[in-house]
Design a protein around this nucleic acid. Structure first.
Lengths: 193, 193
DNA sequence: TCAGCTATCTATAAGCC
DNA sequence: TGGCTTATAGATAGCTG
């Protein structure tokens, strides 16, 4: 692709190889995200550069997909894996985020604008709204909203109520999205797990 | 790509979506293999179709790459976990004190008993239930439930999956009740707080 | 390193079997 | 389903600043 066709064999020049690695890795992740959006697939990608640097892409997260792959017959591990996966979603490699931002900027408008209009500018989302149809843009926006909200709450709690601030720092409770519950994302916990 | 440009959003027609999924999955794996060959990278990809069918690509193998990924995350996050544990310890004292203050503020009511009856003894709570009427007792019960859950999960994870156990010990996630959000209590978590 | 810039090359959306 | 074909959209190799 590009100015010349190159043979599919190891690129000898190190600098050249590094550039190609970056570009193609980005392209690979973009393709993966499109596959997720277009087809509703779940995808996890882990890439190690020759230098040993790691990059990953995951939807809904690397861990959830990998765990499902490794433990398809173990429901306990599956559920626990999902919990942890959701918790760690925000630790995604920069690529996922950057990619989403890029897409958000490029594709801003259309569906997203409509969606935002109906939601208004209050940046409030109903958490039990159907999630299936939300695309990356919306999810990204929602994530930002949650982060903002969390930040505000954190500050608010600290100055108004030490107990809540404590909870924030210390409680071990789990919040989890249970995507398998149905069309709605719901937050729940259960002591019998 | 192709005859027409299509928007990157979920394809509605099922048959069409299935075709696109197959084609793009093939393309994704091809891109991945080229990345491996051209740049000497290690790549693992796991894909679940909406129907739940799994496909994977790995070089040298999915397992080797995933293992490397998981181990690396363990190491990276280990220290963070230690720090957090210490923070929690330091907050313990304050928590106890403030809890007493909270007790003074909260009133108990029959609502709790009714609520508990309808829920039965399974210790399962639906988080989108109205929370406004929950008093201190209820909150404490919830807290105990969460602590039990955490403990069980911890044990379970330790014996079943060192990686997950790691996650549990170190995750920064939290569940919290946000009484001011509205009539529903919502849980969320965040790995960065 | 790092971000554009195109000329080219590849992937693929629609069709058609 | 699963291949082909073809017209286009998208990815990217080689360069440049």
């Amino acid at each position: 692709m590009g100015r010349k066709k190159i043979p599919i064999e190891k690129i000898q020049r190190s600098a050249h190889r590094q550039v190609t690695f970056s570009k193609r890795r980005t392209g690979l992740f973009k393709k993966a995200s499109e596959l997720c959006i277009l087809c509703g697939a779940e995808v996890a990608i882990v890439v190690f550069s020759p230098a040993g640097k790691v990059f990953s892409f995951g939807h809904p997260s690397v861990e959830s997909v990998v765990d499902r792959f490794l433990n398809q017959h173990d429901h306990m591990n599956h559920n626990v894996g999902l919990i942890n996966a959701r918790i760690r979603e925000q630790q995604q490699e920069e690529y996922t985020e950057v990619l989403n931002q890029l897409q958000a900027e490029k594709k801003r408008g259309e569906t997203y604008e409509q969606y935002k209009k109906t939601e208004g500018d209050n940046h409030q989302y109903c958490l039990d709204a159907p999630m299936d149809d939300l695309g990356l843009h919306e999810l990204e926006e929602m994530k930002r909203t949650l982060e903002e909200l969390r930040s505000k709450l954190h500050d608010e709690m600290r100055k108004s109520n030490p107990f809540l601030a404590y909870n924030h720092l210390n409680n071990q409770g789990f919040g989890m999205v249970a995507p398998f519950v149905g069309q709605s994302a719901m937050f729940w916990w259960n002591s019998n797990m």
